[in-house]
């Protein structure tokens, strides 16, 4: 692996470390995770990708103690989620992919406040935090709406606001944009971008375009951590992509097919510019 453990967890920094973690679901013949080791340093933004069934969701559930490893050890801010799940959950918040499951309260603002109510935050501060989180996800005006009347994408933003209100140091996002439209996705990603350096983020997704600006990308397949690479190296490794049932985003695929470098061309705008530049110079040369 490119990032051997550096022992920061004992220095009081907020990090996550997994040491040779293995886990099997009861009754399943094959381990969901086997011998997975990696670390997150404070302020890192790390992506996790891989096929369905590769172990991504299992990993997420081990990080806050919803599941306990069969062997190996998880540490979050120096604490073991298997033995101190409630302490860990103050530091590490998870946004799950299906927002339906998470919404419990009669009104949006109550739902956003739900996680805080268990932390003993003073009333005034709670109101401020809830209002701030609702603003951050662009849901002002929705405070008194009933979650049942919201669309899937709106529900997902409510869930994200509830997570942000707790102010965890580490955010684990399991497909946070899977129910958002293009505009909503750009909005949430832009917001996540503002959290960089301030929070440590582990971002699980099937949309590789969301990770082109991450620090590292982890690939989980068949329960094993098969790669840990920078986005540039990852996007240009065609074999790695194919072996892990990953497909490049449309812009990168078009770029590759017409002989341009996929790693540098992130948006339709940059691709169109590169094509124009190439055809212009081609015309002059001809």
């Amino acid at each position: 692996m490119e990032h051997p453990g550096e022992g920061t967890r004992n220095g009081g920094s907020f990090v996550v470390s997994c040491e040779s973690v293995s886990f099997s679901y009861p009754g399943s013949g094959r381990p969901a995770l086997s011998d997975v080791s990696f670390e997150l340093r404070p302020g890192e933004y790390v992506g996790v990708v891989g096929p369905n069934g590769g172990g991504k969701s299992t990993l997420v559930r081990l990080l806050n103690g919803l599941l306990k490893p069969d062997s190996g050890r998880v540490l979050v801010s120096g604490r073991d989620p298997a033995t101190e799940p409630f302490e860990v959950r103050k530091h590490l918040g998870i946004l799950f992919q299906d927002p339906e499951n998470g919404l419990v309260a009669p009104f949006v603002e109550d739902d956003v406040a739900f996680g805080l109510e268990n932390l003993g935050v003073p009333r005034k501060e709670m109101r401020d935090r809830v209002a701030g989180a609702i603003r951050a996800v662009g849901l002002e005006g929705f405070e008194r709406r009933e979650p049942d009347t919201l669309s899937g994408g709106e529900k997902q933003r409510v869930a994200l606001a509830g997570l942000l209100a707790v102010e965890p140091d580490i955010l684990v996002l399991d497909e946070p944009t899977s129910m958002l439209d293009a505009a909503g996705r750009r909005e949430v990603l832009a917001y996540l971008e503002t959290l960089r350096a301030e929070k440590t983020v582990l971002h699980v997704t099937h949309h590789l375009e969301e990770l082109v600006r991450s620090d590292r990308i982890l690939v989980l397949n068949g329960g094993e951590l098969v790669a840990d690479k920078t986005p540039e190296r990852f996007l240009s490794d065609a074999d790695l992509l194919r072996e892990n049932r990953l497909v490049l985003p449309v812009v990168q695929r078009l770029a590759l097919e017409i002989g341009l470098s996929p790693a540098r061309l992130r948006t339709p705008e940059t691709l169109a510019e590169a094509i124009l530049a190439k055809t212009e110079s081609g015309t002059r040369a001809g």
Binding site: P51, N52, H206, R245, V247
Partner: peptide
Amino acid sequence: AGLDPATRE
């Protein structure tokens, strides 16, 4: 929603 790219295809 939530499917890997190959499964999506």
